[in-house]
Design a binder for these strands. Structure first.
Lengths: 220, 220
DNA sequence: GAGCGGCTCCCCCGTGCGGGGGAGGCTCGT
DNA sequence: ACGAGCCTCCCCCGCACGGGGGAGCCGCTC
């Protein structure tokens, strides 16, 4: 009785790689592929995979939203392993909060990928160790919990804070942002501080980085 | 007489993907894999592949340097296809200048990847069209050449400056960068100033934005 | 060997930034 | 009518940042 897996990634190359790695195992069977999050739900309904291996960054519907959607609309939902290229705490906790069972880096070794799929199939959760280490390093000594809280409060940017962050990502200074929004610089400073706190960023540079890494803004 | 290919990428997953895609062709044979640029030269000497599919970003020796090294030290060198994740990568032109014969995006469809390998094997060059279009759109109307020049002249960052910029894009302060590079903070400040001047950035935040927008670094 | 570019380090100096407080007005929902 | 949340503005304060200089060392080229 094989572990059936649905692959969701917008890059055919990555899908091919996952397929090659997983199909090499006698107890794992790739039963389908999807190129974006929007296609996941009907495929899950039809194929009923045990595990869904899902990329974070995808067109139409990203991995986080797709995870939420699957868990909300499908009964007896599959286990979900979220896969991404870069270690990024925002993704990790967004994904786990959305209900994902595991988190994997694309640079993981094939054996680790296989191991992750088997583990979540058995009902275990899994965090690829490197991610946890990074989180702990970034937020101090008591690791996960505090980091989780910091990140969890992040998603709640107010409209004004989002405006400010958006202008920050365009390289504007506080004074310039103030002029653009027609408010005082002190107001901008308040918003900036709030943004930094919510993003767990130390300064505006880190905030901008998080904005790019989280997809709040996109290059190009 | 099959086209023999050496795969060079630090992610086993991508290697597996390329292998799956290419081995599906009767006339293409993957004869070896390497996980970093440093391992390429001995492998090329031993395996004598017709084509090397090489990632840009790799530990130890990146794809550009590895390309240069292969072309400089191996006689009757293989054709080299450089592969990267993101379009609009300033490395594209570095790669072609280094002597690469083709440029490919990881998100390319399998058929395109196969086509690229066959093409360079026959001595043709290839630029994946989407990249040229994006570059042209950004830098003006007359297409590739001017865009290439713009990119190359835009930021002739020295190696050290590139190191510093890379760490800036990870949110590090000058002191942290200094510690990481094992130099004084004054040195870092010098490099940072040089980077800001070359990028036309007012502060580190703008530099990081430029780094993202130009593809110097890419979000996950 | 003179020159040049890159890496390293040093000085001074102004200021934008971010933390820590607080406070008033506004629109909500209950 | 009341509190909650948001937006707005204010204070003080320390510090990292970035500009403008300069300087010595190395390896390269001419």
């Amino acid at each position: 009785m094989p572990v059936t897996v649905l692959l969701v990634d917008d890059e055919p190359l990555v899908r091919a790689g996952l397929r090659a790695v997983l199909e090499a195992q006698p107890d794992i069977k790739v039963v389908g592929e999807a190129a974006d999050g929007a296609a996941v739900i009907p495929l899950v309904r039809r194929l009923r995979p045990v595990v869904v291996a899902m990329d974070v960054r995808m067109p139409l519907l990203d991995g986080i939203e797709a995870t939420r959607a699957v868990l909300r609309t499908v009964d007896a939902p599959p286990k979900i392993v979220v896969i991404t290229t870069f270690e990024n705490d925002e993704y990790v906790y967004e994904a786990l909060r959305a209900g994902a069972d595991g988190f994997l880096l694309k640079r993981a070794r094939p054996a680790e990928i296989v191991h992750a799929v088997r583990l979540v199939a058995e009902g275990e959760s899994l965090l690829f160790p490197a991610s946890v280490r990074q989180l702990a390093a970034r937020y101090g000594d008591d690791g996960g919990n505090r980091a989780a809280r910091a990140v969890l409060e992040r998603a709640r940017l107010t409209e004004r804070e989002a405006d400010v962050l958006r202008l920050m990502t365009r390289g504007l200074s506080n004074a310039e942002i103030a002029a653009r929004l027609v408010v005082g610089t002190e107001t901008v400073k308040s918003h900036v501080s709030a943004v930094l706190a919510k993003l767990g960023a130390r300064d505006r540079t880190q905030a901008v980085i998080t904005a790019y890494e989280s997809g709040f803004v996109a290059p190009g």
